[in-house]
Design a binder for these strands. Structure first.
Lengths: 200, 200
DNA sequence: GCCATAACATACAGAACAGTCTGTTTGTAA
DNA sequence: TTACAAACAGACTGTTCTGTATGTTATGGC
């Protein structure tokens, strides 16, 4: 006797999760590829292969969908961060390793590009701003915590490591915006190495 | 005998200049206040008190207007830069003064906020990208030149001043985006002072 | 003064947009 | 199985958007 395959008839919760995931995925892809201004609910539905009725059922307004997308971006970034933190479990970080991780996470994939779109848009979009401020704060705190976990700094270079991490974050955010217009990544890497020499 | 007032009947060139100036002014205001995505030609015309016919006469497409606005942003920034440079004429800059000037120019007015909107939008707007890349390059070169004009650096701190200026620019760009969402300017200033201590 | 042309104004066309509505299918608990 | 609610689909509405086409006024060379 053949056992009925569970997935043949997905439960409602599974359907909801899958649908929301497809919509969020399409939203992030669109923000990355076409930019915030060109990201409409219609395009999102088309890209996700979802009817507009389904979209409005799960996200009744465009804002609610965008806010969910904002949280998804930071959730993914946090996941990357946790993964690396787990690998390092036990032994201390060196601050330089944190800097290099931030560099890598900044320029691989489109997460940071998406995030800059969101941050810039949030300045003039008051509906979006609270969610962006909140998620950005937690992400920033997580990155500062990475600095605190480093070996204590000695001698004349006893600047707070978390502050150095935060400076690095702002620097990299400026650079990732630059990278959208200027292709010369070599030059940026040279400058980042200079920054590391100054800070470490 | 009364001399005819020149301005009674403006020449065509004057009319064109005035109209273009009004449109660009309204465009920059809108980008600053409502953001790039919400900046439409209709709103621009309404704000400038200009008919849509006049706008399409001087800027036949939306792109042409936006590109002109892009150039205007950098032109204004350059003007600020020249003004300060003229005041300083003769005596050398100290690098710290350059840093402080960049900080002030970053957070007074909305020029830098506008510029970040433009840079972020240009990544996915191929029509905009060449103009943005070009104007940004010249502005960046002008700021690097400011670093070169400083007194030569001595001792162990003989890092290229222009590189330090460019790093500062990226850092400040990251910070100005942050300021659109997080209000705490004191904290940012504290971090900037830390950066100065490391770099100078 | 005259006429070509630039400067401006208004109306319209076609597309895209977000949101609402009604109807259909599917899961689930009684 | 039946009744109900959630999940999904598609059509429709009113608005806003950019670009264009047509008409009117002002300027400047002759």
């Amino acid at each position: 006797m053949i056992e009925a395959v569970q997935t043949e008839r997905p439960t409602q919760e599974q359907r909801t999760d899958a649908m929301r995931a497809r919509l969020l995925e399409a939203t992030l892809d669109l923000i990355a590829e076409e930019g915030w201004a060109q990201t409409s609910t219609q395009k999102i539905c088309k890209r996700a292969g979802v009817s507009r009725g389904a979209q409005t059922h799960h996200f009744p307004t465009k804002d609610s969908l965008l806010i969910a997308a904002v949280r998804e971006i930071v959730a993914r970034y946090q996941r990357d961060l946790d993964t690396v933190a787990d690998d390092k479990n036990g032994d201390d970080w060196r601050l330089e390793q944190v800097f290099d991780f931030l560099w890598d996470a900044c320029f691989e994939g489109n997460l940071l590009n998406c995030w800059m779109q969101v941050m810039v848009a949030a300045r003039t979009d008051k509906a979006l701003q609270p969610a962006v401020r909140e998620t950005d704060s937690t992400a920033l705190a997580a990155m500062r915590a990475l600095g605190d976990k480093c070996e204590p700094r000695t001698g004349s270079r006893k600047t707070c490591a978390a502050d150095l991490v935060e400076l690095t974050v702002y620097l990299l955010r400026g650079m990732v915006v630059q990278s959208g217009v200027h292709p010369d990544q070599e030059e940026r890497h040279r400058l980042f190495e200079l920054w590391k020499k100054l800070a470490l």
